[in-house]
Design a protein around this nucleic acid. Structure first.
Length: 422
RNA sequence: GGAGGAGUGGCCGAGCGGCCGAAGGCGGCGGUCUUGAAAACCGUUGAUGCGCAAGCGUCCGUGGGUUCGAAUCCUACCUCCUCCGCCA
């Protein structure tokens, strides 16, 4: 959520900066609602002040017959207050509803662009793998090795599900453990295992609601949502809390499955593990002081890159342009891993700084020192990494001409010493 | 699922329908004393909205209601605790 005061004073600038995300932005309604809110508020508060005064007087008066007139008048005043409060409630509901649909302001440093084509590549690591033979796709490899069964997953659940088997299931589990162990080394990140279902307030806090309900799996009774990323439950750990500034930054790492409807992706990535309704992810989440969040984003990105480097998987980093950053983000770096089967780089991690956008929605604040005023923290998160896509990358990059797959060295201890699948 | 009990400030804990944003304690902060620290003593210490400010408003789990006036009364919901049942 944007700062209403800032928005009020810089309406044109906000419109212009939001428009860099694409489309036209008209904040006229925000102005109108804000103005009527303030005028209703001041009228209601004046009456409340009067009522408080007169009621105190009535209270002090022993002989109530002397104040019958005041009591009658206050009855009217109270009626009027009730009307105004109701009007105010409606205006605030509209205003708040509107504010909740406005995306975050892109950072000044966020590159301008019209589409993902305009995302500048800022670094590369390793060389795209040269296999010396015709590479197979991970879905062919997986099926031939009998470690991924898409057909039966479809029978059990439906399309966009996978059944991992044998060394495939073991590889997924090995990756989760390897990632968690790596990130928690030296107490950099504290491991958490959060609920996989959350309520509406949590979804609103991180920005999935109210705009993106269609992308979420929902349970009617109780009114819960399956998490689309661990970002949601982990960021909401501190919703409506005031943190001690001395403890910042607070860094969490969480493994969770993630559930997404992929409603807008019909026909895209229908084969393979790339786009599933359910996938595993190890997520990094940080709560930082505002002045430190840029540096924390760099570190977060480096931590995510560290996993790919340890696995010796080639990748590049792109700086998402204004048209491509997510709703809640102010700045985002994507890590894209090389996939020989498809001969392209594919997103495997997305690392973002949300600044105070989520912390305003979720009311997550901190005190610099005892006695100072609460300020909003900056929240950040990034995949460290998407596990399913890491399996894809390993199968495709480590495949051999005979269709077997070499297990990356760092994973062997997690695979019971297995050096090769197949 | 059934039966009881409870939700007050960072924490514990008082609170008669008006003098309660809320006693008291702990903790925090500042000070006195001390070579320094502890102890003791004194003072101070919630959040938020509108406003340049003075100030005014709001917040005692959440939402409704009664009343001139609600932390205090009524009501629904939420959460927690105890007991019974069921259960990985």
């Amino acid at each position: 959520m944007l700062n209403l005061k800032f928005l009020r004073d810089n309406l044109d600038e906000v419109e212009r900066r939001l428009a860099t995300r694409g489309g036209v932005v008209d904040l006229g309604d925000v102005r109108t609602l804000d103005e009527s809110r303030r005028s209703l508020l001041s009228e209601a508060e004046t009456l409340k002040a009067e009522r408080n005064q007169v009621s105190a007087l009535i209270g002090k008066t022993k002989d109530k017959s002397q104040v019958q007139g005041e009591i009658a008048r206050m009855k009217d005043v109270s009626g009027r207050i009730k009307e105004l409060d109701e009007e105010l409630r409606q205006v605030e509901e509209s205003l708040n509803g509107l504010l909740l649909t406005l995306p975050n302001l892109p950072d000044a440093k966020c590159p301008l662009g019209q589409s993902e084509e305009d995302n500048p590549e800022i670094s590369t690591w390793g060389e795209p793998t040269k296999l010396g033979f015709e590479p197979q796709s991970h879905w062919d490899l997986g099926e031939k090795l009998d470690i991924i069964d898409f057909e039966r997953a479809t029978k059990i659940a439906g399309s966009r599900f996978a059944l991992l088997k044998g060394a495939g299931a073991r590889l997924e589990r090995a990756l989760i453990n390897f990632m968690l162990d790596t990130h928690t080394q030296g107490d950099k990140y504290t491991e958490v295992l959060p609920p996989f279902m959350v309520n509406r307030a949590s979804m609103t806090g991180t920005g999935q609601l109210p705009k993106f309900e269609d992308d979420l799996f929902h349970l009617d009774d109780p009114d819960f949502f399956l998490i689309p990323t661990a970002e949601v439950p982990v960021t909401n750990i501190y919703r409506e809390e005031i943190l001690d500034g001395a403890q910042l930054p607070i860094c969490f790492v969480a493994y969770t499955p993630c559930f997404r409807k992929e409603a807008g992706a019909h026909g895209r990535d229908t084969r393979g593990l790339i786009r599933q309704h359910q996938f595993n992810k190890v997520e990094l989440v940080k709560f930082a002081r505002p002045e430190e969040s840029d540096a924390e984003l760099d570190q977060l990105l480096a931590d995510a890159e560290g996993i790919l480097q340890a696995l010796k998987l080639p990748y590049r980093v792109v700086d998402l342009c204004t048209a491509d950053i997510g709703f809640s983000a102010a700045r985002t770096f994507d890590i894209e891993v090389w996939l020989p089967g498809q001969q392209l780089y594919r997103e495997i991690s997305s690392c973002s700084n949300f600044r105070d956008f989520q912390s305003r929605r979720a009311s997550i604040r901190f005190r610099r020192e005892a006695g100072s005023k609460p300020e909003f923290v900056h929240t950040l998160n990034g995949s460290g990494l998407a596990v399913g896509r890491t399996v894809v990358a390993i199968l495709e990059n480590y495949q051999q001409e005979d269709g077997s797959v070499v297990v990356p060295e760092v994973l062997r201890p997690y695979m019971g010493g297995m050096e090769k699948i197949g």
